[in-house]
């Protein structure tokens, strides 16, 4: 028996919105530590890694490890039927070929359940090596979303250059060029609003705007985002989800010809 109940059901709605543009199907791996999802997009340019810890749920039971392959468009359709304040419960029997989503309104007067067929996905599990990054940048997630949106008007690619002075986002295209520089916040009153840079070595990398814009669909999950960069390795864009886990996106850099 698997059962995961979340009073803040809107988190699951937001998680689906944050991954469904990148992935059409994925496996939810459930064990007694929680729920993990890890999948590359079809073109193997980006990878999504989601972790929701068991202790972040209001009720969590997983008697046997279970891997549930799901069509994410179908899951997104179902979760759109949940109210923002609904409690969401996912449940499945051991060895089941379906999963059930139950939505309860705050006053318990409306209870809906949606049963969905599971898919048999034969997906590879990937090991993500522990990496020491040359630069990490923490910044408000809404600011990062704004920068990605604004710069994608100028070109398909965005250059992210991090030095100890700050971080510069640049794009160049037919209409001209755009540069946005963020300095590290001098004094931190509210950590959520701060730009904090940790740098061992300066790094400049180029990324596809389209993917960065997909990642920013996770903005509503966290007030802050963390970017981790080293030369010639994938960028990591991490949104921490309060008290329950995180969603991390990995993106292969563009390579100079």
């Amino acid at each position: 028996m698997f059962e995961a109940r979340l009073l803040r059901g809107s988190i699951l709605k937001k998680v689906l919105e944050a991954i469904k543009d990148l992935l059409t199907q994925a496996t939810f791996d459930c064990d007694d530590s929680g729920i993990q999802l890890q999948a590359m997009d079809n073109s193997h340019v980006s990878l999504v890694s989601l972790q929701l810890r068991a202790d972040g749920f209001d009720k969590y039971r997983c008697d046997r490890n279970i891997s549930m392959g799901m069509n994410l468009n179908s899951v997104a359709k179902i979760l759109k039927c949940a109210g923002d304040k609904d409690t969401v419960t996912m449940k499945a029997q051991d060895n089941a070929d379906t999963v059930t989503f139950v939505f309860e309104s705050p006053n318990q007067e409306k209870v809906s359940d949606y049963e969905m067929k599971l898919m048999n996905l034969d997906l590879e599990h990937l090991g993500i090596p522990e990496t020491e990054y040359s630069c990490t940048i923490r910044m408000p997630s809404a600011e990062f979303a704004r920068i990605c949106r604004d710069l994608s008007q100028f070109g398909d690619s965005m250059v992210i250059a991090c030095t100890k002075e700050g971080v510069k986002f640049s794009a160049t295209g037919e209409i001209g060029s755009a540069n946005i520089k963020l300095a590290q916040t001098a004094s931190v009153d509210k950590e959520e609003e701060a730009v904090i840079i940790e740098m061992d070595e300066p790094v400049t990398l180029t990324f596809a705007c389209q993917y960065l814009n997909y990642f920013t669909k996770a903005t509503s999950l966290s007030p802050q985002v963390q970017l981790s960069m080293s030369a010639d390795v994938p960028l990591v864009v991490e949104y921490r989800i309060q008290d329950i886990g995180h969603i991390r996106y990995y993106l292969a850099p563009k390579i100079e010809d």
Partner: peptide, 14 residues
């Protein structure tokens, strides 16, 4: 100009 890199090779199949 630039070409899009791929993730294959960065991660190992486990």
């Amino acid at each position: 100009s630039t070409t899009q890199g791929r993730l294959d090779g960065f991660f190992t199949v486990v």
